[in-house]
């Protein structure tokens, strides 16, 4: 089966000559939740940003449902069907909740435009707060809005960069539960996470990125038991672990 999202030997970084991604590869099957794990500085965020068109890709390819979208301008990715929720500053604080969603919806062709009522059904808090400037939302509500903003463009694949960052354990549970609902609605999810336990609990599969390359890929349930996982986080190579 053609992967929904395929990253093939990606090399890239912000500055020429200073690679952060060193041949990273990853495939996400349609309908899957894949967690992208790894220690700080491994290049997890950079990899999803590169796929989203925000970080230059020097070599390698990105395929979305079999279509090569490498180096497509970031603003065209939404139309291609690739959604991205950055880790921080992922909502327009000066726009109201409703305007955040209206803008995102207006930027995709009509047939791809998600209904706001469906978003509000998925995130009931947002409907209540729709007239509020998004900058006044709490951390959890912001995260919900950020996900809703991406979903309203009906992506086939949604990439999220640490949606649990800065949230209480209870809120992390709520956000991840919503992500399950999003997946059940047919959206494929690539999830960058520092919170390994929570991520492996909802992911089907996971990949561990170290120094810009995937070092360990497997079913989430297996990786949760794999002693090598902790070793990679502690800085040991696979051989040592």
């Amino acid at each position: 089966m053609t992967p929904a999202l395929e990253l093939s030997s990606i090399e890239g970084g912000y500055e020429p000559g200073l690679p952060i991604l060193r041949g990273a590869s990853l495939a996400v099957a349609p309908g899957e939740i894949v967690a992208l794990l790894g220690p700080n500085g491994a290049g997890k965020s950079t990899l999803v940003k590169a796929a989203a068109g925000l970080v230059p890709i020097w070599s390698g390819q990105v395929f979305l449902n079999g279509r090569d979208i490498t180096r497509t301008p970031a603003h065209r990715m939404v139309q291609e069907g690739l959604g991205f929720v950055p880790q921080t500053e992922n909502i327009f604080a000066n726009l109201s909740v409703l305007e955040n969603l209206q803008l995102a919806a207006a930027l995709v062709p009509k047939d791809r435009r998600g209904e706001l009522s469906k978003m509000f059904a998925l995130f009931p808090d947002l409907e209540r707060l729709r007239k509020l400037p998004a900058g006044r939302l709490s951390g959890g509500q912001r995260q919900m809005l950020a996900v809703a903003r991406a979903l309203v463009a009906s992506p086939s694949v949604l990439m999220l960069d640490e949606p649990s960052a800065g949230l209480s354990p209870k809120l992390i549970g709520v956000v991840f539960e919503r992500l399950q609902a999003v997946r059940e609605a047919g959206v494929t999810i690539l999830l960058v996470e520092q919170n390994v336990k929570a991520a492996l609990a909802i992911a089907d599969r996971a990949a561990v990125l170290v120094e810009g390359r995937e070092r360990l890929v497997g079913a989430a349930a297996d990786l949760a038991q794999d002693p090598r996982l902790a070793g990679l986080y502690l800085g040991a190579g696979l051989e040592a672990a």
Binding site: L54, A74, H75, M77, I91, F92, A104, L107, R149
Partner: peptide, 10 residues
């Protein structure tokens, strides 16, 4: 507000 996010949003 945020040019990078604006690009991501389309």
């Amino acid at each position: 507000m945020n040019p990078a996010l604006a690009r991501v949003a389309g």
